[in-house]
Nucleic acid binder design. Structure first.
Lengths: 336, 336
DNA sequence: TTGTAGGCGTTATCAT
DNA sequence: ATGATAACGCCTACAA
């Protein structure tokens, strides 16, 4: 036999479909006795609402999309977890799209939502750049999570990249480092690497230290692997450095490993600080000093912003921007 | 103006809605010229299919549910990533439910699908036990991923828990350990801890070593935190042990940290092996020996099994079971 | 307080 | 090769 519909329940309870619907949706105008009858019939037939039908009728899906490079990374995993939890609080489900940090896939995620598969989209832009801002002019709610696309027309939840990086670098300097390297990605677009590199420079400059180009180490990918490899190369090349600011904890984990391979002692010879305060960082040996950007608040704000747009269909004008707070977490890798 | 529907496109192209639908779905019986006309009209009106309507009509959503304890863990994150990728290959989207390893939420996930929100469900059972097998008798496709619910009526993708744990423990013994501890969760239900504990015992027994109850260390939760704490306690209590088999890499990461805190050298004084081959394990200091359970194959099989049930509405009789291969990955923590 | 009618956008079926 | 018709199951109006 087929699954029970609202009609079946109505028949079984001796009422109209509308009354059943009213019971389901907790509408006020239903007599207690009627409600009971209906509830019993529902239980008896093991009735379940057909979400597809409801979606069609309502023009909503109750699901938001989350596009991130990959969930399998300490950082995006943490973020995804927080977003799923926040979405649940708002009565929304989350469907995840993995973009692999590729521009193409990020744009694809934007157009997927145009199928009205999702009520809205939270997009972590990594591959997209300045030039793609036009793509963000879509007619459904989008929140960008991560780096700013300057002048983009959509809501934005960001980290205090420059300030926090400056603080991280300053921390190294305060701990006595004079030759501080930075490990980042390509410094071109407005992105994590560029912004955090800016913070790094500011810190050096305000400490009266010069910025040695040799100490700016750009990686192709921000992975543990790349970090480890580069750290080994730096150590073996004889480059003079006594501190490393890694633009992500993931890179920093690699760096710690690479320095260990090269028998460089942390923090005695070189101090290391990361960015993200990933769960693992506390348990590394040595434990990793880092920047905590308050993931949970960011997630809550991103979902809140999106949910607001969805519910109230807010006008486009008042584009919102939220920048999280941060704190420096001092651990063993900087002698803490 | 409102979004374009199939009707609008039909009108604009001077054909019927059915023809447009046929074009969209690549049906064969459409003349080339007609197809062109329709495609142009679609482009002109910026037409997007309404997924909700299609779902209602087809009785499918094109989305599967994935219920895991939390995506924010190296292991489940890795798994989720692999499953999302596999699902994409099968033309399916993935919506993630976080259960927090709670029985209640796992059962909830099972009943969510009954809303026909998802075409099927991949469920990582952690909190559910033997006694809950009845709940699995649902009328839509479910694949259990993880430990076996003995006699459960649904498809199952599992790790070779016993064999792999035996191999891990044997590896420690071969490296000279004589007092091998195990760090696991409660050993009661048929679950990771119990199965892996069995493998542990088997290895000890076939090596002619006695099983010292003091060396069986049960944790409340399988977290880094719990692992680190217990390792410190073990070291400080003066317990005699020279090897530790951790039932998950996450626990092992904690253990490495805890032993470092207690100034116990790994692998010289104590050797450590984990289970899962999480991305991070290669980069820890010391790098972590572990069991690689071939996540990608497991994910592919789980999704494949589910997709098969969804497509072919296979009968219940032929319950499938797949057990992945495994390999021992030897690294520094066991002197590799 | 409850019921009736109609349509959300799509596609399966059956004609033509 | 194309089109007319009728659902899929629910809910917003309005009527009773």
């Amino acid at each position: 036999m087929n699954v029970a519909t609202i009609q079946d329940v109505a028949k079984a309870a001796g009422v109209s479909a509308m009354t059943v619907s009213n019971v389901i949706n907790d509408h006020p105008n239903v007599r207690k006795a009627t409600r009971e009858k209906v509830l019993q019939a529902m239980a008896r037939l093991d009735y379940r609402v057909n979400v597809a039908a409801r979606n069609l009728r309502k023009g909503r899906t109750g699901t938001i999309g989350l596009a991130v490079p990959e969930v399998n990374s300490p950082y995006y995993g943490r973020l995804a977890a927080a977003i799923i939890a926040a979405a649940e609080r708002h009565g929304l489900r989350v469907s995840i799209e993995q973009t692999g940090a590729l521009r193409e896939n990020e744009l694809e995620a934007l157009s997927m939502s145009r199928n009205r598969l999702y009520d809205g989209l939270i997009l972590s832009t990594v591959g997209m750049g300045q030039a793609d801002a036009e793509w963000l002019k879509v007619d459904y709610p989008v929140v960008i999570l991560g780096e700013r696309i300057f002048g983009g027309p959509v809501d934005h939840v960001a980290m205090p990249n420059i300030d926090a990086s400056q603080a991280a670098t300053r921390h190294l300097i305060e701990r006595g480092c004079r030759r501080v390297a930075i490990l980042c990605g390509a410094v071109e677009e407005v992105d994590v690497s560029t912004l955090r590199h800016t913070g790094y420079r500011l810190a050096l400059e305000s400490a009266g230290l010069s910025v040695d180009p040799d100490l700016v180490q750009c990686l192709d990918t921000l992975t543990m692997h790349a970090g480890a490899r580069r750290a080994r190369e730096m150590a073996h090349s004889g480059l003079d450095f006594d501190g490393v600011f890694c633009v992500t904890d993931t890179v920093a984990m690699g760096v710690l490993r690479g320095l260990a391979d090269a028998s460089v002692r942390v923090p005695e010879q070189v101090k290391v600080i990361g960015f993200d305060n990933v769960d693992e960082s506390e348990f590394l040996v040595p434990s990793l000093s880092t920047i905590d950007p308050d993931h949970d608040t960011m997630a809550e704000r991103a979902v809140g912003l999106l949910a607001g747009r969805i519910d109230r269909a807010e006008p486009r004008g008042d584009r919102q921007e939220f920048v999280s707070r941060f704190s420096v977490v001092v651990r063993e890798s900087t002698g803490g």
